[in-house]
Amino acid sequence: VVYAVWAAVWVTWNVFIICFYLEVGGLSKDSELLTFNLSRHHSWWREHGLGCVREEPAASLGLLDSQAPVPGHGCALEHGYVEALHSALQILVALVGFVCACYVISIFTEEEDSCLRK
Rank of each mutant, 00 (worst) to 15 (best):
G72R: 01
Y21W: 12
N37R: 11
W45Q: 06
L64S: 09
L50I: 15
L50C: 05
S43H: 05
I18F: 02
V93H: 05
S39R: 02
V11K: 06
T109R: 15
E111P: 03
D65G: 12
S114G: 05
A8I: 11
L77D: 05
G80C: 03
V1Y: 13
F108I: 06
G74M: 07
L22C: 05
C115S: 12
L89F: 12
A68F: 10
G72P: 01
V2N: 12
V9S: 10
L61M: 07
T109Y: 11
R46F: 08
L33E: 03
E23S: 04
V9K: 09
G62D: 07
C115D: 15
I105S: 15
P57K: 10
L92N: 07
I91A: 10
V53P: 02
A59Q: 10
E110F: 11
S28Y: 05
V70Q: 08
A8R: 09
C52H: 02
V82P: 04
N37H: 10
D113Q: 14
E111T: 06
S87Y: 01
C19A: 12
G72H: 04
F108R: 14
S31L: 00
V70E: 10
A94W: 01
L89H: 04
A88T: 11
S87V: 05
I17M: 13
S60C: 06
F108Q: 14
P69D: 04
W44F: 13
P69L: 03
A7F: 14
D113S: 13
E56P: 05
G97D: 08
T35Y: 00
S31F: 00
S43V: 04
G80S: 02
C102T: 05
E47Y: 15
Y81Q: 08
A94T: 03
V24I: 13
V93G: 05
W10A: 13
F20M: 01
R40S: 12
D65S: 15
W45C: 07
Q90H: 14
F20R: 00
W10P: 03
A68P: 04
G74W: 04
D30S: 11
L34W: 02
Y21F: 15
T35L: 03
V15A: 14
E110D: 14
E56W: 09
S66P: 04
H73S: 11
C115Q: 10
E83P: 02
L92T: 12
G62W: 14
E110I: 09
E23W: 00
D30L: 07
P57C: 08
G26S: 02
C19F: 11
G26Y: 02
E55D: 07
K118Y: 14
F108W: 06
I105Q: 15
C19D: 06
S28R: 13
P57D: 05
L64D: 09
A101V: 01
N37I: 01
G26R: 04
E23I: 00
F20L: 06
E78S: 14
V5Q: 15
V96P: 08
D113T: 07
L27P: 01
V99F: 10
I107F: 09
G25V: 01
V9T: 12
P69N: 07
C19I: 00
L89N: 11
A101C: 09
L64K: 13
N14D: 05
V96T: 15
L89I: 09
T109W: 11
